[in-house]
Structure formats: C-alpha cells, structure tokens
Amino acid sequence: MKNIKAVVNLSKSIFAVALVLIGFNSSAVEEGEVLPEFTLPSIYEGKAEISSASLEGKTVYLDFWASWCAPCILSLPMYNEMYHKYKDQGLEVVAINLDNPIEDGLDFLLDTPLDFLIPSDPEGGSAELFEVIGMPTSYLIAPNGEVKLVHMGFRDGDMETIEAEVQKTLAEN
C-alpha cells in the first residue's frame, strides 16, 4: 500500500515537472515581439550568409519552408511575385529552407527558381529559435525589428491577407 502511494506520488512529481517543462517550451515568436538573432548560410554555395543583422532597417517577409511541405511549395512562387512587386519599395523576402538533406531543397529550386534570399538550415536550429509550430510559418518584420504578422499554414486566399499587411507595413515606414 505504502509502495503504491510512493509510486503515485512519484508519478505526480514527474507530471508536475513535465508541465513546467512544457510551460518553458512555449516561447514562440509572436506579433509585437522583436526578431530573434540568427545567422545562416545561403543554400547556394558561394553566396553571402544571411543574418538578422543584415536585414536591419528593412521590411522583411521571413518564411520557413521545406520541399516536402505541399503548402510551402504552393506559397513560394506567390512570394516570388510579391517580392518583385514590392522590392523597389524596400521589401526583402527571406525563405529559410529546412530540408535535410539540402539537396532536396536545391532540386526543388532547380524547377522553381526563386529570386529572393534563401538561407539553408538542415538542422532546424532557426525553426527551434522561432518555435515554429507548423509548416509553413511566416513572419512579417518591420524595419525596427518588430514582428507585425505571424502566418501559419497556407491556403487559397491567404496571399491577399499577407499582401495587405505588407502594404500597410511598407506604407508606415
């Protein structure tokens, strides 16, 4: 009887610790927060690395994607169009590729050339940093580093919402 009580008490303690750990874990980057610092190499060999510092002072649309993620593949050509439409107004698009192996991402880019910055992070350290909870997740960042929009997933019609926010942020700065 005593032993059963001991096991129950131990289980309760483990459960409590687990709850605390879950609490510590939920630190996803949200709207109103500042862009976390990161430095990543470009997916293309020989191109300059991309860091949060190099994006300072720009309106940035940052996206996490992988070639196996169907909605990501749907969204990227649209982001490319958006980039061309607003780059003269100061928009920078950064799409962090999380493919492991990197070759999967490069294969996709051979078929679908994209003109914006594509850092590569096969280990997913940056996704861990942002606490990405779904693929794709994207962030609109104002020139002062503030996260203006967090957008998870990608469905038909989402582009209108994203573009409206981009226009608003570009107009404010």
Binding site: A6, D99, D104, A127, V132
Partner: peptide
C-alpha cells in the same frame, strides 16, 4: 521491484520524443 519498475518506465519514456514540424520530411513521403 517498484524502483526497478519506475527506472525501467523512465528508460522507455526516454525514447518518446516529439517530432518537430520541420522534421517531418520522411513522414510526408
């Protein structure tokens, strides 16, 4: 026996890890 049971359970639980959203490349095949 109780200690062994708890230790063994913890050893097994150790294998339970969350597959993060960006680690689902193989699962989506």
């Amino acid at each position: 026996k109780v200690i062994l049971f708890v230790a063994f359970s913890m050893l097994i639980l150790n294998a339970c890890s969350q597959v993060r959203p960006w680690e689902r490349g193989y699962l989506s095949k």
